[in-house]
Nucleic acid binder design. Structure first.
Lengths: 330, 330
DNA sequence: CTGTTAGCGCCTTCAC
DNA sequence: GTGAAGGCGCTAACAG
């Protein structure tokens, strides 16, 4: 690979001048500049980013750690992050946070190969995030309550959204509403449960433990929850699932047992993944503004990178999207 | 941030010794080693990865460029890649290939911040890949026919899979089979069309242009294709969609017009995304071994990184997964 | 306007 | 077994 030294030699200038020319410093004369540019083109010169990063002590790159890089849920989030990062002249790269690959995390964050990070992975322990965020390495977390002097919170209104969803089901005439949660310890799931609980309490509807089911955010766990409901007899009037993938699993599980949504049971999910509107019946759900979540998270990160210190959590509004799965048929 | 020099000073040894101790070189005495380790722990020392990369001229990192980071399709692929990369001691990071963000591409590949790459993004121009692959930067492409001295092909048997799908529909009694393609220029879509065409020709079924529809791999385009079919009258007996997301759109579009699958029309997709089995009716599709695709691609990449030069494309077998959407009801 | 110099933080011969 | 010195490729003072 051609190096700056090679270019300088070929152009007959010093290495510093070559550098200046390539970096558009106004001080170099136009004629020498073009000489350098020609030489660079001839040699197919490409600057070595690593050397530059070392010298400048910045990488102009942020990392994004997600739980499941291919999950239907993260597409818009990444678009938001990338678009905003581009605007600031940064690159954004993504990695899976968990799994055996603490290696990726180590390399990027602990060994300083990025300037900051955004994390949305419920399985990532607080401890690791806390231990990584530092003076020159801000981290924005999207799925938990965690502030350190160098980490920041951006999230969506899980409680409000869940509350709205539950109220919607009650308004539709349901008197028993089941809840299918995500993994017990995940922040998002806990908050959604709180919203559910709150809505019931506000309306004076008793909380019935037999209608609380635990899933793990996968379609498969939705199927199992549906089975459990059918088998225990006494189907609820409505089900609120803590995410859309489980809701879709529930749809499928119900159908396998001849239970039809919304005729026999209403159903609401959470997230509004793209497929929600294409399943049958189309799925009522609580939309999270994922693209915006991405852009806002990125902006918070950059503000911190520029020295601003405002630790105020930012909570984005959710929106109930009513579709067929919760429309009472008559 | 504490640096190696700080650790050395605190431990009362030279930089070289500190380095050797931390890198488990056998030459340093056990006692001094632990002295250094203590000092490092005390200072919360973390090696600077960038400096190491510069010195060693390698990053132990590979990049993965995908079209849509959150697409339902890439989850397993990334798992395969990451698992294999970990096994070799490498980190894998992902970026979106296209969009305005040539920045990510530039930074990672052209400026040498990774050792190799895997690309699966139909919108990425051949030219860019060709211009980036180099002696020390092998690239494995998963979605096109492109070999240079430093790029390699791993793919799935699109033609065979499409052929199998089409034959399956013909076997089920369909005499007219429509095809809904992806974007005109994408390799995967073209190959799947070829398989479709081949199956029809082999069976002496005439190819009817009125049954060829162009989509763009999104659910929405599937909906539109379904509408077009209904409106033009003369529904085909069966539809083969070039991917599952379009198939799901078709399902939805048909339903909106009272067309029921599989009663009125059979349907087969391609990919076997996770949701395929949860929609109604469950979707018959051609499974691509995505996890394996990831592991194999990664292995090819590492072989090349270690100097092996075998340009033979590797084509993985697909598998027809028969579900309800193509089961003739009677 | 251009060249010389001094590192960024680390690894690695080479002497001692 | 340990230390001193050089350099990976680049940028940014500081001189000239």
């Amino acid at each position: 690979m051609a190096t700056l030294k090679d270019v300088a030699r070929l152009a007959g200038v010093s290495i510093a001048t070559a550098s200046g020319a390539l970096n558009r410093q106004p001080r170099v004369k136009e004629t020498t500049r073009s000489k350098v540019l020609d030489a660079a083109a001839l040699l197919k010169y490409r600057p070595n980013g690593i050397a530059r990063d070392l010298k400048t002590q910045r990488t102009d790159t942020i990392a994004v750690f997600l739980h499941d890089l291919g999950g239907p849920f993260y597409s818009e989030l990444m678009r938001g992050i990338q678009d905003m990062a581009e605007k600031y002249g940064y690159a954004a790269i993504a990695g899976r946070g968990t799994g055996d690959n603490n290696r990726t995390w180590t390399r990027l964050l602990l060994e300083g190969r990025v300037d900051g990070a955004i994390v949305m992975d419920p399985e990532m322990p607080d401890q690791i995030i806390r231990g990584s965020a530092g003076d020159s390495l801000p981290i924005v977390v999207l799925d938990r309550q965690l502030t350190t002097p160098h980490s920041f919170i951006v999230g969506t209104d899980n409680v409000g959204g869940a509350c709205q969803a539950t109220n919607h089901l009650l308004d539709a005439g349901a008197s028993t509403v089941a809840f299918v949660s995500g993994p017990a310890q995940t922040y998002d799931s806990i908050m959604r449960y709180r919203g559910y609980e709150k809505a019931l309490l506000d309306r004076g509807v008793p909380l019935d433990r037999r209608f609380i089911f635990q899933g793990n955010f996968t379609e498969q766990s939705g199927v199992l929850a549906a089975q459990a409901m059918v088998l225990q007899g006494g189907l609820p009037d409505a089900v609120f699932a803590a995410n859309d993938e489980m809701a879709i699993g529930i749809l499928s599980g119900f159908r396998a047992h001849g239970v039809e949504v919304p005729r026999d049971c209403l159903l609401v999910g959470f997230d509004d993944i793209r497929l929600a509107q294409y399943v049958t019946p189309s799925l009522t759900t609580v939309r999270q503004p994922m693209y915006e979540l991405g852009t806002v998270a990125t902006e918070v990160l950059f503000k911190s990178l520029q020295g601003e210190r405002s630790g105020e959590p930012i909570i984005l509004k959710t929106e109930l999207v009513v579709r067929d799965s919760s429309r009472r048929v008559r």
